[in-house]
Structure formats: C-alpha cells, structure tokens
Amino acid sequence: MDGFERRKQQKKQAILQASLSLFQTQGIKKVPIAEIAKAANVSQVTIYNYFESKENLLEEVLIYYVDQIWQDYQYLFTEDISFDKKIKQMLFGKVDIANDINGEFLQFLMQYYTTEGNYIEKLYREEVLPAVMQLLQQGREEGLVHEQISDQAMLFYLQMFAEYLKREDLAPQIIPMTEDLTRLFFYGIAGEEPASE
C-alpha cells in the first residue's frame, strides 16, 4: 500500500469512528455530515467522495460496528480459557449492546438485519455460527454441554433464534432481554450455570 492509499484508509477509518461515536450518542437524524467532518478532521467533500451519501455512510458504519463486536468475540472464543469462563464473559463481560447504542441507531441495525442478503446475516452464517459450534464442542469436551444434544439440534435452535431476530417489530422487546436469552440458550429454563472451578 503506497502513502496515498494509506492516508485514504486512515481518513476513511477516522470518518467511520467519528460517525459511529456520534450516531451512538446522538442518533442518526440529529447528526449532520458537517459535524461528522469536524469530528473526523476532514472536509464534507471528502466524506461524500468516499461514501457518496449519508445513507451509504450509515451502512458502512453499521458494518464497521458489527465487525468491532465480532472481533471482541473472536478474541474471546480463541482465548485459552475454559468453556465456563468464556460463557460467563459472554454473559457478563464488556460487550453490552443494549447500553452503548442509541435507540435510533439500534432500530436501523435491526431493520438492516431484515434485508435479504445483508452483511450481518453473511457474517453470522460464514463466521459466527462455525465459531459458536466450535465453542459448544469445547463445552462438550469439558463435560459442560450435554453429549446427547446433536449439532443439528443446536444449529436448528440457533437458526430459529436468528430468524426470529429478523422481525422488525421485536427489536424493542429483544434488546433488553439479551442477557436473559443468552442465559436461556446456554443453561436452559432451569437457569443452572455450570459450577465454577
């Protein structure tokens, strides 16, 4: 990558970071391109040159945001720690979508997820799902996931959950229940967590 391309990528990254920060705190409609340009230390023309419209920028910001979250989980999934500790970090760790995102931005994210062939669905199918299956296999090996539950049943359950999330009208109900739903998936309706080491 030459110097020009590197500077272009740095500017694009600055725009995405500034946009995400502003959209998360203020929502989408209240944030003009001029404010994003000021926060990213670039001109408005530069933003339009890179993204063409606020709508395209918003979609790129959403992808950038999802990638950041996925990177956090990828790191967790590959850490050399027990299944039990990984699950507890997933349930009670730093990633808390419900608290760090503006309602308007969250609504856009949920609407985007309902569109056919979207980036989130592709990422889920190609990367997230295989990683979760590998995590569940670790749980089996450590005796914390019941060996009689088949991969097919777990895949069906995950797909059922993912399909349900695509319903636009459910976003306001689902997000506050994220922790409960995750706990329900891993520990069942009895709510029993594995004993700590």
Rank of each mutant, 00 (worst) to 15 (best):
M160A: 11
Y119Q: 01
D180M: 13
L20G: 10
L181F: 15
Q89P: 00
Q17T: 09
S150L: 03
R6M: 13
G143Q: 07
H146L: 08
G27W: 04
Y75M: 08
N56W: 07
F23M: 07
I36E: 03
Y64F: 15
F77V: 00
A39W: 00
G27E: 08
Q111A: 11
E35V: 05
F4Y: 14
Q68W: 12
K8S: 11
V145E: 00
I174R: 08
E116N: 13
G191Q: 08
Y64R: 04
L123I: 04
F92Q: 04
A37C: 04
L170K: 12
A34L: 13
D72L: 05
Y73I: 10
A98Y: 12
Q10S: 11
K54L: 10
A153K: 06
E79N: 05
K12I: 12
S150Y: 04
L165S: 06
K30T: 09
L91A: 01
A37P: 04
T178N: 11
Y64N: 05
N118D: 09
K38D: 12
Q134N: 14
N99M: 06
T178K: 10
F185R: 03
Y119D: 01
E142H: 06
D72W: 03
I63L: 09
P32M: 05
L58N: 09
F185H: 03
Q17H: 13
Y48N: 12
A39Y: 00
Q111K: 08
K94A: 15
N41D: 06
F92E: 08
L20K: 11
E121L: 02
A131P: 00
L91D: 00
K38P: 02
V45E: 15
L109D: 02
I81A: 04
I189P: 00
Q44D: 08
V45Q: 15
Y119P: 01
K38F: 06
M110L: 10
R140F: 02
F23H: 03
F92D: 07
L158A: 03
T178V: 12
K166S: 12
P32S: 05
F83T: 01
Q89W: 01
L184G: 08
K94Y: 12
F51K: 07
V45W: 12
E35H: 07
Q44C: 09
A153F: 06
E55G: 09
Q138L: 15
D96P: 04
S150I: 03
T178F: 11
K86E: 03
D72I: 05
Y119N: 00
Q9H: 11
Q10R: 15
P176H: 07
E197S: 13
Y112L: 00
A37E: 04
Y48C: 07
E193L: 12
G93T: 02
F51G: 06
A131S: 10
T115N: 13
A14N: 15
N41Y: 02
